[in-house]
């Protein structure tokens, strides 16, 4: 059992490292790095389930009978593309956030937001009184 499932356990550990980085780190680029690790580990999960003992790459050729399952390969090709699309868009947002807030740390941004929130509320109450 240990050998049969060892691969899956390693994948789970990798995924969780990625997820931990996403949640625990305040730096926006690091969060995206975490997401990338998380997604890549899912790819490994799919690819390892496609594997067949003694099989070969799914390209038909003379004298080969046993092939790996091609379907997960196709799915993951799509998922890789989706992953890079998300990364690109996320990074574009980070660039804009840096320009708008001058920081890419979650705490600083939240702090700045709270300040603007307070200011508008103060203005609002002043407006009411007048």
């Amino acid at each position: 059992m240990i050998i049969g499932l060892f691969n899956d356990w390693v994948v789970v550990v990798l995924m969780m490292i990625g997820l931990y980085i996403v949640i625990a780190h305040g730096n926006l680029i690091k969060k995206i790095v975490g997401l990338a690790i998380f997604q890549t580990s899912v790819f490994i999960l799919y690819i390892s389930m496609a594997n067949v003992e003694g099989g070969s790459a799914p390209i038909l050729a003379e004298g080969i009978k046993q092939f790996s399952n091609p379907l997960p390969h196709v799915l993951i090709l799509t998922a890789i593309v989706v992953g890079v699309a998300t990364t690109a868009l996320g990074l574009a947002l980070v660039v804009r956030i840096k320009e708008a807030y001058g920081s890419i740390e979650e705490e600083d941004i939240q702090h700045l937001d709270n300040k603007t929130q307070d200011e508008t509320e103060i203005q609002a109450t002043e407006g009411d009184q007048s």
Binding site: A36, T40, F43, I47, S48, A50, N51, G55, S56, A57, P58, I59, F67, S68, P72, H73, I76, L77, I80, V81, G83, V84
Partner: peptide, 15 residues
């Protein structure tokens, strides 16, 4: 190593 050559190709190029 898992015989997924197409995927490996893409991952190397993209990731």
């Amino acid at each position: 190593a898992m015989d997924a050559v197409d995927v490996a190709f893409t991952e190397a190029a993209v990731g």
